[in-house]
């Protein structure tokens, strides 16, 4: 320290000090530039599939999408025309059944996890199970539903809905819990201070305040379920006719796409693209609704 203070010492030291400014062609700078370039390339490459999928959906699916496509029944073999009206209704009905089962149960479970016993053993166990189940292969929901329902009652829309609800339940629980945790503790404390019972606190403060977040979670779960196909494969099966009863095989958009994609007929393949476009639009509508009800936190 003291050496630096004397002018002569600092002058001799300055000769030895390397040039500290970054040099444009130094190896470090070049590495930096190269990696930045690489990152841009990877990021662009990563978004190519999305744009390619969207392009194909609009050009192939958009060309075939008309009133007939969304109302008519699926064509057989060499038939021209046709559509997938029954599959749209089937998808919507099964997602509705799944929501009716999973949303009330999921929100109730989330109430326990977020408000009633957040630190209890039961809560941490169910939280863990819910997280594990979000990574659960969707086809296993189908296998499970096959084992409990289809074996006894045959293929049905109800079985399809149950299979989807198994997949929705963990998503709804985790999202609703997260939303309820965002409710300020002060509001909850104030309600307790006024003499509310825990149930009154939940119904009058936590649920109304957390509603947008809960709704977002529900919408995202619905969007996910609408796009699912593996669990429907051998629970709802497929049908070439309009839905008449919840207890019979039911068509869905995703299974229609799967079946038609492997067919050697151009008409069916075009319909598969059009059905994909409709399916993606349905999924997107729920995604957008989810975003609209709550402004993103991040």
């Amino acid at each position: 320290m003291s050496e630096l203070a004397t002018p002569s010492a600092s002058a001799s030291a300055s000769a030895k000090i390397p040039r500290l400014e970054r040099q444009a062609w130094e190896r470090r700078t070049l590495t930096n530039r190269f990696l930045t370039l690489l990152t841009w390339l990877v990021a662009i490459l990563g978004s190519v599939p999305l744009f390619s999928v969207i392009f194909m959906l609009v050009s192939e699916g958009g060309a075939r999408l008309d009133w007939e496509a969304i109302t008519a029944l699926p064509p057989a073999g060499f038939d021209m025309g046709g559509g997938f009206g029954n599959a749209i209704i089937g998808t919507l009905v099964m997602v509705a059944i799944a929501s009716l089962i999973s949303v009330p149960l999921g929100i109730l479970a989330a109430i326990y996890l977020a408000v009633l016993g957040p630190a209890s053993k039961l809560a941490s166990a169910s939280r863990f199970v819910a997280k594990t189940l979000t990574g659960f292969p969707s086809i296993l929901a189908g296998v499970f539903t096959y084992a409990i329902l289809v074996v006894n009652f045959g293929y049905s829309a109800l079985a399809g809905g149950v299979a989807l609800s198994v997949l929705m339940l963990p998503t709804v629980i985790l999202a609703a819990e997260e939303a309820m945790k965002q409710v300020p503790q002060k509001m909850v404390d104030a309600a307790y201070g006024m003499g509310c019972t825990p149930t009154q606190v939940i119904w009058k403060v936590v649920l109304p305040t957390g509603a947008p977040g809960i709704l977002t979670g529900v919408m995202l779960a619905v969007a996910g379920a609408a796009g699912e196909s593996a669990p429907l494969l051998f629970t709802a099966l497929f049908s070439n006719y309009y839905l008449e009863s919840l207890m019979e095989p039911t068509a869905s958009l995703s299974i229609l796409i799967y079946n038609f994609s492997a067919m050697p007929f151009d008409n069916q393949i075009q319909l598969a693209w059009a059905a994909s476009l409709v399916l993606v639009l349905i999924v997107l509508v729920f995604n957008i609704l989810a975003r609209l009800v709550s402004r993103p936190k991040f």
Partner: peptide, 19 residues
Amino acid sequence: IVELLAAIPSVVYGLWGIY
């Protein structure tokens, strides 16, 4: 864009893959 990538159903990726 990344979130949309996650939102596209599996069968649609399958169809895209084939064609």
